[in-house]
């Protein structure tokens, strides 16, 4: 059966191999890879990987493999039918990001079903406010809930949430 995964790869050596690893590790057969460099966003290149699987069960295992590997996947189809439809949202947090327990922030997003695919922290001095940029992958139907959760966390921890403009 023909499966396709839309992944978002950092424009750096080795990232494609990492993204392909879950497919080959679970018996999928990759037969085409298309990079959409004109749609590069947030430093990530949307890449469509087409591969052959035996059935939906095998695809589910590969899907879990992507998650485990930390591959940012926004769409998976099987024979043209959408199995997964996700959005990636870039968010900058400003404030005392580390002092207010960044791990707790990520864990709470994870509990909601959001996958933080990257977390980049910039801190000038420990006593001063810092900033972090996260890429969060979320199923489309949970997007509004994610925004509310981010606002709630920001209010509790006195952080400023700067999210990516909608529809970008």
């Amino acid at each position: 059966m023909k499966a396709e995964a839309l992944v978002h790869l950092k424009d750096a050596p080795g990232t494609l191999l990492e993204a392909l690893a879950p497919i080959s590790a679970h018996g999928g057969n990759v037969y085409s890879i298309s990079h959409f460099r004109e749609r590069i966003k947030g430093g990530a290149v949307p890449t469509l990987i087409a591969f052959e699987v035996k059935d939906l069960e095998q695809l589910e295992v590969i899907k879990k493999g992507f998650l485990k590997q930390g591959v940012e996947v926004t769409e998976i189809t099987l024979e043209g039918r959408k199995i997964v439809k996700r959005k990636t949202l870039a968010v900058v947090l400003v404030g005392h990001v580390m002092a207010t327990d960044a791990k707790n922030t990520i864990d709470r997003l994870d509990e909601y079903g959001a996958f933080v695919s990257s977390f980049d922290l910039s801190i000038a001095k420990t006593e001063l406010p810092s900033a972090a940029l996260m890429h969060i992958v979320i199923e489309e139907n949970k997007y509004e809930g994610l925004l509310k959760l981010l606002d709630k966390i920001a209010e509790e921890k006195k952080l400023v949430v700067i999210r990516e403009v909608e529809g970008s």
Binding site: K41, G43, V92, D120, S122, I123, P129, V160, I162, E164
Partner: peptide
């Protein structure tokens, strides 16, 4: 929400990832 709390570190991270605030 205003812009007074935005710090250069946040701007730089955004810029590195292809965004402006």
């Amino acid at each position: 929400v205003g812009i007074e709390e935005i710090i250069p570190e946040g701007i730089a991270l955004a810029k590195k990832s292809g965004f402006a605030i």
